[in-house]
Design a protein around this nucleic acid. Sequence first.
DNA 1: GTGTGCTATATCGTTACGATATAGCACACG
DNA 2: CGTGTGCTATATCGTAACGATATAGCACAC
Lengths: 174, 174
Amino acid sequence: MLTIEPMSGYDMKKFSEQSLAHFWHESYGNLYPRLKRLAGAGLIRGRRESRTRAPDAIVYSLTSAGREAFLEWLDEAPEPERPRSELVLKMFFGAHSSRDRLARLMDERRRDLEETRDRYAEIEAMLREGLEDRPEVPFWLITLRRGQLLTEARLRWCEECATWLDRPRAEPPR
Amino acid sequence: MLTIEPMSGYDMKKFSEQSLAHFWHESYGNLYPRLKRLAGAGLIRGRRESRTRAPDAIVYSLTSAGREAFLEWLDEAPEPERPRSELVLKMFFGAHSSRDRLARLMDERRRDLEETRDRYAEIEAMLREGLEDRPEVPFWLITLRRGQLLTEARLRWCEECATWLDRPRAEPPR
DNA sequence: GTGTGCTATATCGTTACGATATAGCACACG
DNA sequence: CGTGTGCTATATCGTAACGATATAGCACAC
């Protein structure tokens, strides 16, 4: 995140919630200790800054060693994902529940996904409307595109589940 | 998993790799301590059994209290997912890398996804071919269906990325 | 008899987590 | 002027979870 601009830990948490949330979750319990470690290793440097209408913040920026380490990281093979979807787990074991209860769970999920879809549309509009010509923007759009594709797929699954739960027939074909 | 049949920790690890992997990751470091805790709480019961061509295993089964707890869990609102996709993170910050390197990362991912798709097809065939008439099978098929929809969406994203990385044009539309 | 490969349990050291405590700042409102 | 509210900001505690690996039984091959 510091390649975008210098930030505090708090800024990073907000940024990750707004821009990375759909493929990367971050927490204070990870963030703050990590910032200390990175600063100790000389990869980032923190400076106390006073801010209007807020308490002082420690604003970090990349050192040249940090930028180098970042570029190396970019090139490494990504860690495999470790998914944990409790909702799907509950569907998997759904034979022990009732169709009504499952339908309710799926419906709540569907509503979340629809909200997500709408928010994506707003973000896309924002990114496309100029927003200066930062070289990063195309990359942000392409990851947004992934979010949109996945959200559509998940919504479709919710709908198929709802249909199926409504009348116990054969499974959706492939 | 113990609602399906009594199992050892080792069995559960294998089962989760074969059947839950695409929405639930499990590890020994979580599994074994948890089994001890659950047994201590009286929710499961473990019995030492000797097995052919293998060392003894502690085979666990649900107690009635355990089954009750399981049914309660099924009914609770699922925990939100906490995604962590390093690949997408690297795409997001891809402006600092080269198109070649990114294309290589995406290509590796694409191959994995194609393998996944093929394995899904095999599993689906297996599940549809009779496999007794366990009441769980439709639920297993519907979660499999989710895996298929998501895999298709991910593959499509890989292809769009590859196309885009090849010639720097405008972003894929929506 | 020694090697290979699968089965099986267990734990170590580290990391990560959610939740929450603490507190600064600015403005609203009466 | 005082008090409340809400956002900003850092920090940490206790617990959970992690990957990796150690240990070892069993069976069969060669």
